[in-house]
Design a protein around this nucleic acid. Sequence first.
RNA 1: GGUCCGUUCGUCUAUCGGUUAGGACACCUGGUUUUCAACCAGGUAAGAGGGGUUCGACUCCCCUACGGACUGCCA
Length: 467
Amino acid sequence: MSTPQIVTRFAPSPTGYLHIGGGRTALFNWLYARGRGGKFLLRIEDTDRERSTPEATAAILRGLTWLGLDWDGEVVSQFERKDRHAEVAHQMLARGTAYKCFASKEDIDAFRTAEEAAGRYPLFLSPWRDADPATYPDLPYVIRMKAPRLGETVIEDKVQGKVTFQNDQLDDMIVLRSDLTPTYMLAVVVDDHDMGVTHVIRGDDHLANAARQTMVYQAMGWDVPVWAHIPLIHGPDGKKLSKRHGALGVEEYQAMGYPAAGMRNYLTRLGWAKGDAEIFTSHEAQSMFDLDGIGRAPARLDFKKMENTCGHHMAMAQDAALLHELQAYLAVTGKPVLTQAQRDLLMRGMYCLKDRAKTFPELLDKAAFALASRPIQPEAAAAAFLDDVSRGILQSLTLQLQNVTWNKDNLEAILTKAATTADIGFGKLASPLRAALAGRTATPSVYDIMLVLGRDETLARLGDTCR
RNA sequence: GGUCCGUUCGUCUAUCGGUUAGGACACCUGGUUUUCAACCAGGUAAGAGGGGUUCGACUCCCCUACGGACUGCCA
């Protein structure tokens, strides 16, 4: 007996950017499928023609791509499958698991308002459920599912456990609208079934929907997928994530300069855990990820931890990959592109820059000493180290650096000797040197500065200072 | 209102009836250091409240409080 292939999917509505919570949902689906040799599919739920836009679809694809979540096959447009949905609706009709309902929207609204006013649960029960087709009027109609009135529908959820819904709480939902377009409730089920989706991992705002969708599966005699309804992400204050919490869209995190690998790691750990694992590669995440590890309570976004995680990934990354992602960051934020010389400088200095930065803006800031052009304009705090005595010491140091072979050991020997000769502590030498070479007080070590800058630039900057 | 879900350090979480309740981030103290970051050592800090069940409950059950989702010819 072979294990059927795992198929997961991410199915966003194209009504805006890719929400950070949606990004995590996609990530969970991706991890689960990728870690098990399965497929991860992407479907755009664009049946709401009023709110769906191609721009939003493009933004979602960009967000997923940035996060590094690749999907299998073509992106499926739900809207384009509307004929298939209608076909299934009519099959339900033929099977007797659905019926035509001629009640007008106005009648239903009036009914609901009245029921609510009377303090009752406004469950609309269509009078057409068991009507004789011979009595059907010549009016527009919708197709409603003939949902079971008695008993209960049980969801076996991998995250929420067994959740039971009383069938008398659920109405006969509309599956095909009067304009013959499908509703979400029908479309998801048909699409998930046709696409062979085996595991539905989505936000727990869909938990109740799972009950109704189960009825559609049953009405069609199809296998119900494995459910996993994950809690939504909340803001730092524990409230539902909203604009006042700051960034909502995945692309905003890219624009803030967070590395994608770090975001994947952070988002994976947000609401999921495997023992004490904290920092891991995506490959490791794929093999560790499971549905059991998903928590049941909503998790809050913690920017500090996110930055810390990103910092680890910055340090772990390959130099060339970091430079590449840095350039992508510059591009999306509309910042000037790097020159070849700057790229060379960054590649040369990456080894001492990447473990000091958590984000790309920080990386750029740490690299400022290398990217700066002569003459260096020292910040006030740095300039304070450049008094006449210091300049004198730097001047004699300059002479000793003229002909030395440019490597760390030699530089170390010379600087140590210079400090001894001048009878000062190393700090008294390093601070002015740092000020002269970088114009700042916080930089990589003076050796690293000199190594990254190279002899010519180092001597030139010293010359500028001592002139 | 009804239905459903949730609640362990400030935050993310481990624990799956018996632990000095562990780890990570953040924070504090000390160390290291040419600055910053990093790093090392240590510290503060938690089972929402109340009832049960049990020899024993963070873990199982009930109630309360608080938070959330759903309750559309939206998805």
